[in-house]
Amino acid sequence: MSLAERLALVTEGISDAATRAGRDEKDITMIVVTKFHPAQLVRDLYDLGVRDVGENRHQEAEAKAAELAELDLTWHFIGQLQSNKARAARKYASVVHSVDRSSLVTALGNAAFTPSGEPELNVVPVLDCFVQLNLTQDPARGGVQPADVVELAELVAAEPSLNLRGVMAVAPLEEEPRVAFARVRAASDRVRSVIPTATYISAGMSHDYAEAIAEGATHLRIGSAITGNGPVAG
């Protein structure tokens, strides 16, 4: 199956899932995750109409964004981000989906300004952010526990150069996806009760995006179902 065929198949699947959930597919953003794939794949996706791409690793994301700077792309960073990479990430990422601790909030906020307090010219002026939830008890997975999500969300909202869009999560493999995403939706409701504009939910991947849509996901992070399992050229 070609890249175009895989993209069409997932697009159709999203449309069908939205219809079943009584939702408008136009309210759902599909982010194509291109980790481990060459920049040429992103060019091919661009030619097919894709404008939102996601990366998990800073070094790879930084290099691809530089190589493809002439393309009108929205870069979503979706992996764990080290605080000392915050300034570099703000130079290419328009959205960070993985804000998971207070130190990263501070680093991302500070990255918008020079040491003298002037606006940094080479970074995205206002960075969209999602607070990442950890739906497991494993701290290595990244994210905050649902009980702590409002506190972290308030820290993001208090940073003038950050724009809190909502919450993000990965469904644990050992849990029924729909049940996991219901927990994400509940966390989103708690955040919105304090920050009404934080209406987005980043959830759902290649194998569970339909369940995520059923529970209100607005941003899907789709990788292998579109890109294939290994690096491809098209």
Rank of each mutant, 00 (worst) to 15 (best):
E118Q: 12
E118F: 10
E118M: 07
E120V: 06
E120H: 11
L121K: 09
N122E: 15
V123G: 04
V123S: 10
V123R: 13
P125H: 10
V126C: 11
V126M: 13
L127R: 05
L127G: 03
D128M: 13
D128S: 09
F130C: 09
F130S: 01
F130R: 08
V131P: 07
Q132C: 05
Q132Y: 03
L133R: 03
L133N: 09
N134C: 03
N134L: 10
T136E: 03
Q137W: 15
P139T: 04
P139M: 02
R141K: 14
G142H: 13
G142K: 05
G143E: 14
G143V: 03
V144C: 02
V144Y: 01
Q145K: 07
Q145V: 12
Q145H: 10
Q145D: 12
P146T: 11
P146L: 05
P146M: 04
A147H: 13
D148N: 11
D148I: 09
V149C: 12
V149N: 00
V150R: 03
E151D: 15
L152F: 04
L152P: 05
L152Q: 08
L152K: 03
L152A: 00
A153F: 02
A153G: 14
E154T: 12
L155I: 04
L155K: 14
L155N: 13
V156R: 00
A157I: 10
A157K: 03
A158Y: 06
A158E: 14
E159C: 07
E159F: 09
S161M: 11
L162K: 00
N163C: 14
L164I: 12
R165L: 09
G166P: 01
G166H: 03
V167L: 01
M168N: 09
M168K: 05
M168T: 00
M168H: 05
A169E: 07
A169S: 06
V170E: 06
V170P: 00
A171C: 05
P172F: 15
P172H: 09
E175W: 12
E176M: 04
P177Q: 05
R178A: 10
R178L: 10
R178C: 11
R178Q: 12
R178H: 08
V179S: 12
V179A: 09
V179K: 12
F181D: 00
F181A: 01
F181E: 01
A182R: 00
A182L: 14
A182C: 11
A182N: 10
V184Q: 06
V184I: 11
V184A: 03
